[in-house]
Write a protein that binds this DNA or RNA. Sequence first.
DNA 1: CCATTTTTCTATAGGCCTATAGATGAAATC
DNA 2: GATTTCATCTATAGGCCTATAGAAAAATGG
Lengths: 234, 234
Amino acid sequence: MKSRSSSPVRASAIRNSRRELAKNAVASDEPSSRKRNTHRRSPEIIDAAARVFAERGYHGATTQDIADVLNIRQASLYYYFPSKEVALEIVCTRGVEDFFKAAQAIATGPGTPPEKLAGLIRSHISPILDRGDFVKVFLTQRQFLPNESRRRVGKWSRQIEKIFEAVIREGMKTGDFRTDQDPRLTTLALLGMANAVASWYGNEKASIERIGGEFVSLTLHGLSGKAGRGARVR
Amino acid sequence: MKSRSSSPVRASAIRNSRRELAKNAVASDEPSSRKRNTHRRSPEIIDAAARVFAERGYHGATTQDIADVLNIRQASLYYYFPSKEVALEIVCTRGVEDFFKAAQAIATGPGTPPEKLAGLIRSHISPILDRGDFVKVFLTQRQFLPNESRRRVGKWSRQIEKIFEAVIREGMKTGDFRTDQDPRLTTLALLGMANAVASWYGNEKASIERIGGEFVSLTLHGLSGKAGRGARVR
DNA sequence: CCATTTTTCTATAGGCCTATAGATGAAATC
DNA sequence: GATTTCATCTATAGGCCTATAGAAAAATGG
């Protein structure tokens, strides 16, 4: 199923001396567009990689699997990316960059801390809707990136944590939030709760908006007490 | 670095001559047979597998990696398990069985729903302390089990969800919990929050007990409001 | 329609990985 | 002490996987 032609014919060794790098899919914006429209299918290729990485994990996925999704030959992929590791980095980056930007916008925007926190929670789970595979890969496979790119991607991750924590601290100052919770642990709790959605969304019938609402109300008011106590956010 | 020429220190290790129950890790109950004390090192072998699987993921880990931890040859592992997949199943099983039992005991035991839920949260994160690698592997690698064993392991997982959900519903009936939260989504939120601990415990300075306390109070009372409102559990 | 440029293909080297076979030595048991 | 059992070793078959080289096909633009 995998290999099609029989192999065994030996050829004399030919040392390669070529060092030509296919220019990658990462920076696709060429300002001066005198160049041709090259690597047109890059987004499609990366989508396929995300899908396969999400399903089988980075090490469990083969480049053949990705090629199968696209109906091209395994070797053809290397026209689009120079290595499987680079493909992983591209996928991870797209998995985190968007919701980092959204989080930042919310944190620096207007609103009371409870409103901001509600926005953060909602915006954190919303990319799962249309970029679920990318988010999943970012969350579960970034640990397999080579050191340098892992640090690069990890930086965004920590920024998001900082944004949550800052809003929580702000709410404690304003008196909106209880002060006997640890901001760091609370941040990790909320992110854990939100990140888990990527792993089960699709098996549950609830919509992203619905999930967001439930999580926000749980976070702000907890389970105890009667329904409707306190002002609801949004 | 990998292979060595000298055989591992064979040191006339102190033999536990009277330790008959150490039957291998899979099916440890040998009812009557006065069999010899075979596969003595099984627990150690499985510990090493858990450690390596937790660190590199199932597909990223090689049997050579496991052997290196133990200072034995790669092929020697096959005296202890018949395949890498079976090793994964053993690790996953040990990662879930304990806290399933604990959860069940708490749910069927005495206490108000808030007390029970607090107990569930605490007991769910506590195995991370001394079985972190097993829990991690169960949470993140069980998807790579072959169908049959994945279903077997998944069954436990769903049981735990049911236990949480039942306690939440019970609390809604008694009036201890708000009734405008969805029990299913709340369950998934709490489990996501608790499971995430496995991924960052060890990088944070907080103890398991501390984390449990924070999570319980966040879950029951939420972030809003003044500190100390309402009865604290435990 | 020809020349370029872009995209995909065939073929395969070279490496690593799981799992099996059988040998070897050490321990336990008789 | 002889025999049996246990644990580990050496060696390797047999597969699969990434990545490279270079040819072929398809698209583009004059």
